[in-house]
Every structure is written in structure tokens, then in C-alpha cells.
Amino acid sequence: MQQQSDAAAGRQNERAIIERCKQGDLSAFDELVRRYEKHVFNFAFRMTQNHDDAADISSDAFMKVYNGIHSFRGDANFSTWLFRIVTNLYLDSRKKSKAHMNIPLDEYIDLEESSVARQIEDPLPLPQAQIESNERVDMLSEAINELPEYQRVMVLLYHTQGKSYEEIAEIVGLPIGTVKSRLNRARLALKKRLEPMRELFDA
């Protein structure tokens, strides 16, 4: 009960911040960014698997919020709107890079350099537990990354951002039934992919 009224108070408070933001109050915008930067960046990072791209998408998303806050309806859910913007920016960027057959040469070079750097900077062996957890994260990220784009977005929204099916449906603009069935399909695909690496996760 208490939690519910806290959540209600939080929404009320957020609405007030958004109203101030609409009046051009930059401190209110700052507050919105503060509230959501971590969620947005995490989501963008898991989608792009790249710090710089994630930062660009996150920054552009907040600028879209800033520019479009006038058109944001008070009765809508701000976080759903924000995630919709982030999702669209990501999908657009994917479309663009596909359309231009843009081979991210720099990225490969970066990756190579950084892996070399890591070996040099880190002479001590990592504790076994840490190796395992890193491996785990890598496997999972890789498996998620191999999903079709929409499924990947949905899996991340559901399993890392804790969004409900209703929210995801609104974010990706698909009917809730479609979201549910695609998510189920995605989980089955992940199951297949992760099954052989199960022992990593058992500990």
C-alpha cells in the first residue's frame, strides 16, 4: 500500500518536472536526464554493445525529449515514451548502417587494440569467479546479439529493463500478442543457444 502511494507520488512528482521542462526550465530537464540516464544508457549499451554508440544514441534521445517535450501528453507514461525514442534511434541507426553497407572498420581496429592493451595492462590472472562471470556475460550478450533486432529489443526491455508486455507493446508499436509470441520465440532461441554453456551459469 505504502509502495503504491510512493509510486503514485513519484509519478505526480515526475509530471511536475515534465511541466517545468515544458516551460523551458533546464534544471527540470537536468533532473529528467539524471533520473533516466542510467536506464537509457544501459539499454542502448546492451543493444549496440558499444560505449560510444550507446552514448550517442542516449544523448540524441534526450535531445529528442528536450525538443519534443511540448508534444508529450501528460497522461502518457514518460519512460515508455523515452524508451520508444531510444528504440527508434537504435533501429534507425541499424537501418542506416545496413543501407550503406557501412563496415565499421574502426571498430574492429579498436577491438583489436583494446584487447591487446588489456593483455599488457593486466599481468595478474583474474580470479576464476570473475573469469566465469565475464564469460557468462559475454555469452549472454552474444546470444542476445544474434537475435533478430526486434526480438533483441524486446528481450532487453523485458529482462534487463523490467518493462511489462503492455509497455513493450507501446514502445515498439506492436500488438501485445505479437510482443508475447516474439518474446517466447526469442527465449526459445536463447535457450537453444545457451544450453551447451549451462554449466557456466549453474554456479
Partner: peptide
């Protein structure tokens, strides 16, 4: 079990100065 695995992705921090940069853009 797969469902459980999906919860293990750790959170990452936004780059330092991210909020400042965004607000300065605005």
C-alpha cells in the same frame, strides 16, 4: 533455466559527464 540466466547481465554506468554534456547541448 534460460529465463533465469537472462537476469545476470550487469548494469553499466553512463559515461562520466554524460548528463552534463546532454544538458549543455540543451
Amino acid at each position: 533455466i534460460t529465463w533465469g540466466m537472462l537476469g545476470v547481465l550487469p548494469e553499466v554506468e553512463a559515461p562520466s559527464g554524460f548528463r552534463h554534456d546532454v544538458v549543455m547541448r540543451a
